[in-house]
Computed example of a mutant assay.
Amino acid sequence: MNPMTTTILTSSLATGTIITASSYHWLMAWVGLEMNTLAIIPMISKKHHPRATEAATKYFLTQAAASAMLLFASTTNAWQTGTWDITNMTNQTANMLLTMALAMKLGLAPVHFWLPEVLQGSTMKTALIITTWQKLAPMALILILSNNLSTPALLTMGMFSALLGGWAGLNQTQTRKIMAYSSIAHLGWMAVITTIMPKILMLNLALYLLMTMSMFFILILLDSKNIKDMATSSTASQTITATAMLTLLSLGGLPPLTGFLPKWLILDELTTQSLATTATVMALSALLSLFFYLRLGYSTTITLAPNTTMTKHKWRFKPTDYTLLLTLTLPASLLMLPLSPMMC
């Protein structure tokens, strides 16, 4: 893609997110979300491949439907209250519509259907943007509206997302689809705590972004698109292969890695609020997610490919990879658990 085009699209992405996060008028929030959508679509379809075109079409239709639902919810609220202020959402019907619209924007179950297919049709770098940066604008609206959104609806969607993200990821072999279902499961954990403790939601979002970025940087450096590629990744870099295993375990939420921190705090808060059933369902759903993380980690670091050669390096040398971004995100995604006393 032309550097000028890339610059315009990237700046439009950033501007759209900033407009949405900083606005108090529903129309400006909608404009920011639309800028986000229109900027990411050329990035998805730039490969000029039928799968990329299909992914861009699915993303556009889903996001357009979610934006229309959000505009309809805000219009309904303005009709009843006479104001377009984001913080003045008092109409229950509008709140329910808004919850569903933001869930569709994020990819929460049961409106998650677009996320795995869009990621599979995108490049790895575009998939990284969709699973990280594109979550910021809807999450900003959720944080602003955390006192108004429907708690039963968010608890139900959160439990369903965590269960479906773990269950549907079990039979996947493509790394982008595995990361898509991982994203759905993590968003479920964020949804159940949204109206109860927004501070834990912010912590969970920050750690999710760090861990997901680290994993995608590893997949990009190893050029791994499926489990078979991961099984032969040790010939590319044994150091990155070892850190991939730790990052996967952190995504699964195993102590003493960073990923354990948000799950620990969320389960603690749910039991404090007498939501023991929800906490049990969430804890059991984490086992499903952990299974496919362990399977991917096992294939990456413990097994060898059936056609293993005697050499320790790939026969074709590549230019030196740019690993600064991985160096910045990896320590934070693995070693932040000792900071937990500050969060409690």
Rank of each mutant, 00 (worst) to 15 (best):
H313M: 13
L337P: 01
M230Y: 01
Y322A: 13
T308H: 15
A65R: 04
T239E: 03
I40K: 06
A305I: 08
T81P: 00
M343Q: 09
N307Q: 15
M89P: 01
S285H: 08
G107R: 04
K105Y: 06
T323Q: 11
P110R: 12
L97K: 07
S23H: 05
T17C: 10
L210G: 00
I218C: 10
S122Q: 05
T247C: 11
T5E: 13
K225D: 14
L275Y: 12
P341L: 04
Q172E: 14
N307I: 09
M336I: 05
F72L: 15
L155H: 12
P110N: 10
G32M: 04
S333W: 05
L287F: 10
Q273H: 15
L119Q: 06
M157K: 07
Q92I: 12
F260N: 05
R51T: 09
L270S: 10
K46L: 06
W30R: 02
D85Q: 14
T247R: 00
L149I: 13
T132H: 09
M213A: 12
T277H: 07
N226E: 04
D229M: 03
L155Q: 12
Y24R: 09
L265K: 13
S224M: 02
L9Y: 07
L284R: 09
T271H: 13
L221F: 01
M157H: 03
V118G: 06
G297A: 15
T6N: 15
M211Q: 13
F113I: 08
T132C: 09
D223T: 09
W114A: 02
A153K: 04
T173E: 12
L106K: 02
S214E: 06
M157T: 01
Q63K: 05
L71G: 14
L143P: 05
W26H: 04
L163Y: 02
G32I: 05
G297Q: 08
T17R: 02
M100R: 06
T309R: 15
A231S: 09
T212K: 07
K312C: 10
L106V: 04
L330M: 14
W26R: 00
F216R: 11
G16W: 03
L201P: 00
